[in-house]
């Protein structure tokens, strides 16, 4: 492969498809731009004119509330027109192909597509298909990546910990099926986190995960020892009864984050979760609602981060 398909010849971001392969300078630029958008929410008029007259299509082939809503709010804060399409209930069920759907929406003068799809690589396929002035943001594709989630996580970590250079970070849970984890691992290593751990049972780890530059733990007590940041993952319900796990209760016993297990981490460690949470499966309520949880600030920061990504793309 000669180049990164999401970057133009002179290194400008054309689409946001993956975190993998993006340089640290670009990730930092997105985080810095997001920082500037934070102040907008405290003003009398919470809107900016940057994307006035642009049409942004939220294309969700998979259900989502948080991600779709924060993208919608972000686009509206930038004065764009937002069209939400819930494809699982429309043309696709009538047999239209993905690229035919895209062609039709482009004929309606779409400027940007925000795509969530169960198939890894769906956003990539769309990005290669659209006209050069149309931008695509991957809002989660299969088990591959969820780049804006990782970016808002990086924003949250930087907000609470200032620097990435001295941090010990642990990602806990179903790494195998998690596009969030994959994007997080790439973002954290690119931004220079010196010690990144993943904690999971062997059945929920992808083969060769060590090659991504992480330390593997199967035990929470050891894995959480002295970490600064705990990043929990969602255990999807279809995994709770399947060949990979005995039961949700058993998972909680060994890998659910309780106050007792969190005591191994540093006293000022923060706890993150991309949502939606399964209380009593991957995280205990006393931790989720506790003083070290930054789960709701993550959601708020997600708006500013998505504003940053959309405005950088629209300007390139």
């Amino acid at each position: 492969m000669h180049s990164n398909p999401q970057l133009s010849k002179n290194g400008e971001l054309q689409h946001l498809l993956t975190i993998e392969g993006l340089p640290a300078t670009l990730l930092t630029q997105i985080l810095d731009t997001a920082q500037s958008f934070i102040g907008v929410t405290e003003r009398e008029v919470k809107k900016l004119p940057l994307l006035r007259g642009k049409a942004i299509f939220n294309l969700f082939f998979e259900p989502s509330t948080r991600t779709r809503t924060t993208f919608e709010i972000a686009a509206k804060r930038l004065s764009a027109d937002v069209i939400n399409l819930n494809i699982s209930t429309s043309s696709q069920s009538k047999g239209e192909t993905l690229l035919d759907t895209i062609d039709n929406l482009e004929a309606m003068h779409a400027d940007m597509f925000i795509v969530r799809h169960a198939q890894s690589g769906a956003a990539h396929l769309i990005a290669q298909h659209v006209a050069p002035n149309v931008h695509v943001i991957n809002a989660g594709d299969g088990r591959h990546e969820h780049p804006t989630q990782a970016l808002l996580d990086m924003f949250t970590i930087r907000h609470y910990k200032r620097e990435f250079a001295n941090l010990r970070v642990a990602i806990v849970g179903d790494i195998l099926h998690s596009r969030v984890a994959r994007s997080q691992i790439h973002a954290l290593t690119t931004l220079g986190v010196p010690e990144l751990r993943v904690i999971a049972p062997k059945t929920l780890l992808p083969a060769g995960v060590e090659n991504l530059g992480v330390h593997v733990y199967h035990d929470m007590q050891r894995g959480l020892k002295d970490v600064d940041v705990v990043m929990m993952l969602r255990l999807q319900s279809e995994r709770m009864q399947g060949p990979l796990l005995p039961s949700a209760q058993e998972f909680f016993k060994y890998y659910g984050l309780t106050a007792e297990k969190l005591a191994a981490a540093r006293p000022d460690a923060i706890v993150m979760h991309p949502g939606p949470m399964n209380r009593g499966v991957e995280i205990d309520s006393s931790v989720a609602d506790g003083p070290r949880s930054v789960i709701l600030p993550q959601v708020t920061f997600g708006i500013a981060v998505r504003m940053a990504v959309m405005s950088i793309l629209a300007g390139n």
Partner: peptide, 17 residues
Amino acid sequence: FYRDDFARIGLHPQVKP
């Protein structure tokens, strides 16, 4: 965020709040 040439030259990479 209010420049009238945003569509032509894009976002300045070092925006300050």
